[in-house]
């Protein structure tokens, strides 16, 4: 049961309290670029959630077995070439290069797969998928998972990594859809000339960030609610 509580806490933390866009400022480019209409914004959000989960799955696997300090695979290679078994092998310096490679190639494969097997989905995702490679939110999700795998006392399992990725993706979808809804209404407002476009969008984002600050402390309530439900 503790596992479930911790998963829900990680999920809520990534989606609401430390929202990727409004707290960590990752994924600002699509947040400003494709938030003019609600349906495209929602499509972008879904595409990001999808890719962030896949890259979290792959990057967790690579990090757990190869990159983290004391990972099994390099240790086995080290022993079999006759190295001193007391030495700990740490390949985490390679993690940035590996992560961006994994993300770029998984985006490419997802694009090919979706185009072949789900043409209608491809038509609605189409334009956004290649853009996602350079979306900071994806890399940020993997870096957060790396942070939790570098500390051997509280290693994250795959379920926790996936909870973080899903929470981050859904939080991004929520923020970008809300933003698009507000901007659709803003089109009918009389905005001062120089602020039109990006200026007013950023100010709206600032007010949304203030609203999301209200979620600080929600985790305590969620924790007690979940433990009351499970009892």
């Amino acid at each position: 049961m503790e596992i479930l509580t911790s998963l829900i806490l990680i999920f809520v933390g990534a989606a609401l309290i430390n929202n990727f866009v409004l707290h960590y400022f990752v994924g600002i480019c699509p947040f400003l670029g494709v938030s003019r209409r609600v349906d495209t914004a929602f499509g972008m959000g879904c595409a990001v959630t999808f890719v962030i989960s896949i890259s979290a799955l792959l990057n967790w696997t690579v990090t757990y077995f190869v990159l983290r300090p004391g990972a099994p695979l390099p240790a086995w290679v080290w022993r079999s070439v006759g190295g001193d078994p007391g030495t700990q092998v740490d390949l985490s310096v390679l993690s940035y290069i590996i992560y961006i490679f994994v993300i770029a190639s998984s985006v490419q494969f997802v694009e090919m797969y979706v185009r072949k097997f789900f043409p209608p989905l491809y038509r609605s995702f189409g334009v956004f998928l290649p853009l996602i490679t350079t979306n900071c939110a994806i890399l940020f999700g993997s870096l957060e998972i790396l942070k939790h795998l570098q500390d051997p006392t509280r290693l994250w399992g795959l379920h926790q990594a996936l909870a973080l990725a899903l929470g981050g993706g859904i939080g991004f979808t929520l923020a970008i859809s809300l933003m698009a809804g507000i901007r659709e209404e803003l089109d009918m407002c009389d905005v001062p000339g120089p602020l039109k476009g990006a200026g007013v969008a950023l100010i709206v984002a600032g007010i949304m960030a203030m609203a999301f600050m209200g979620f600080v402390g929600v985790d305590k309530g969620v924790q007690s609610a979940v433990s009351a439900l499970l009892r």
Binding site: V200, L202, A205, G206, A209
Partner: peptide, 8 residues
Amino acid sequence: PGAFLTLG
């Protein structure tokens, strides 16, 4: 929020 407001 200050970052968004300032940049805007």
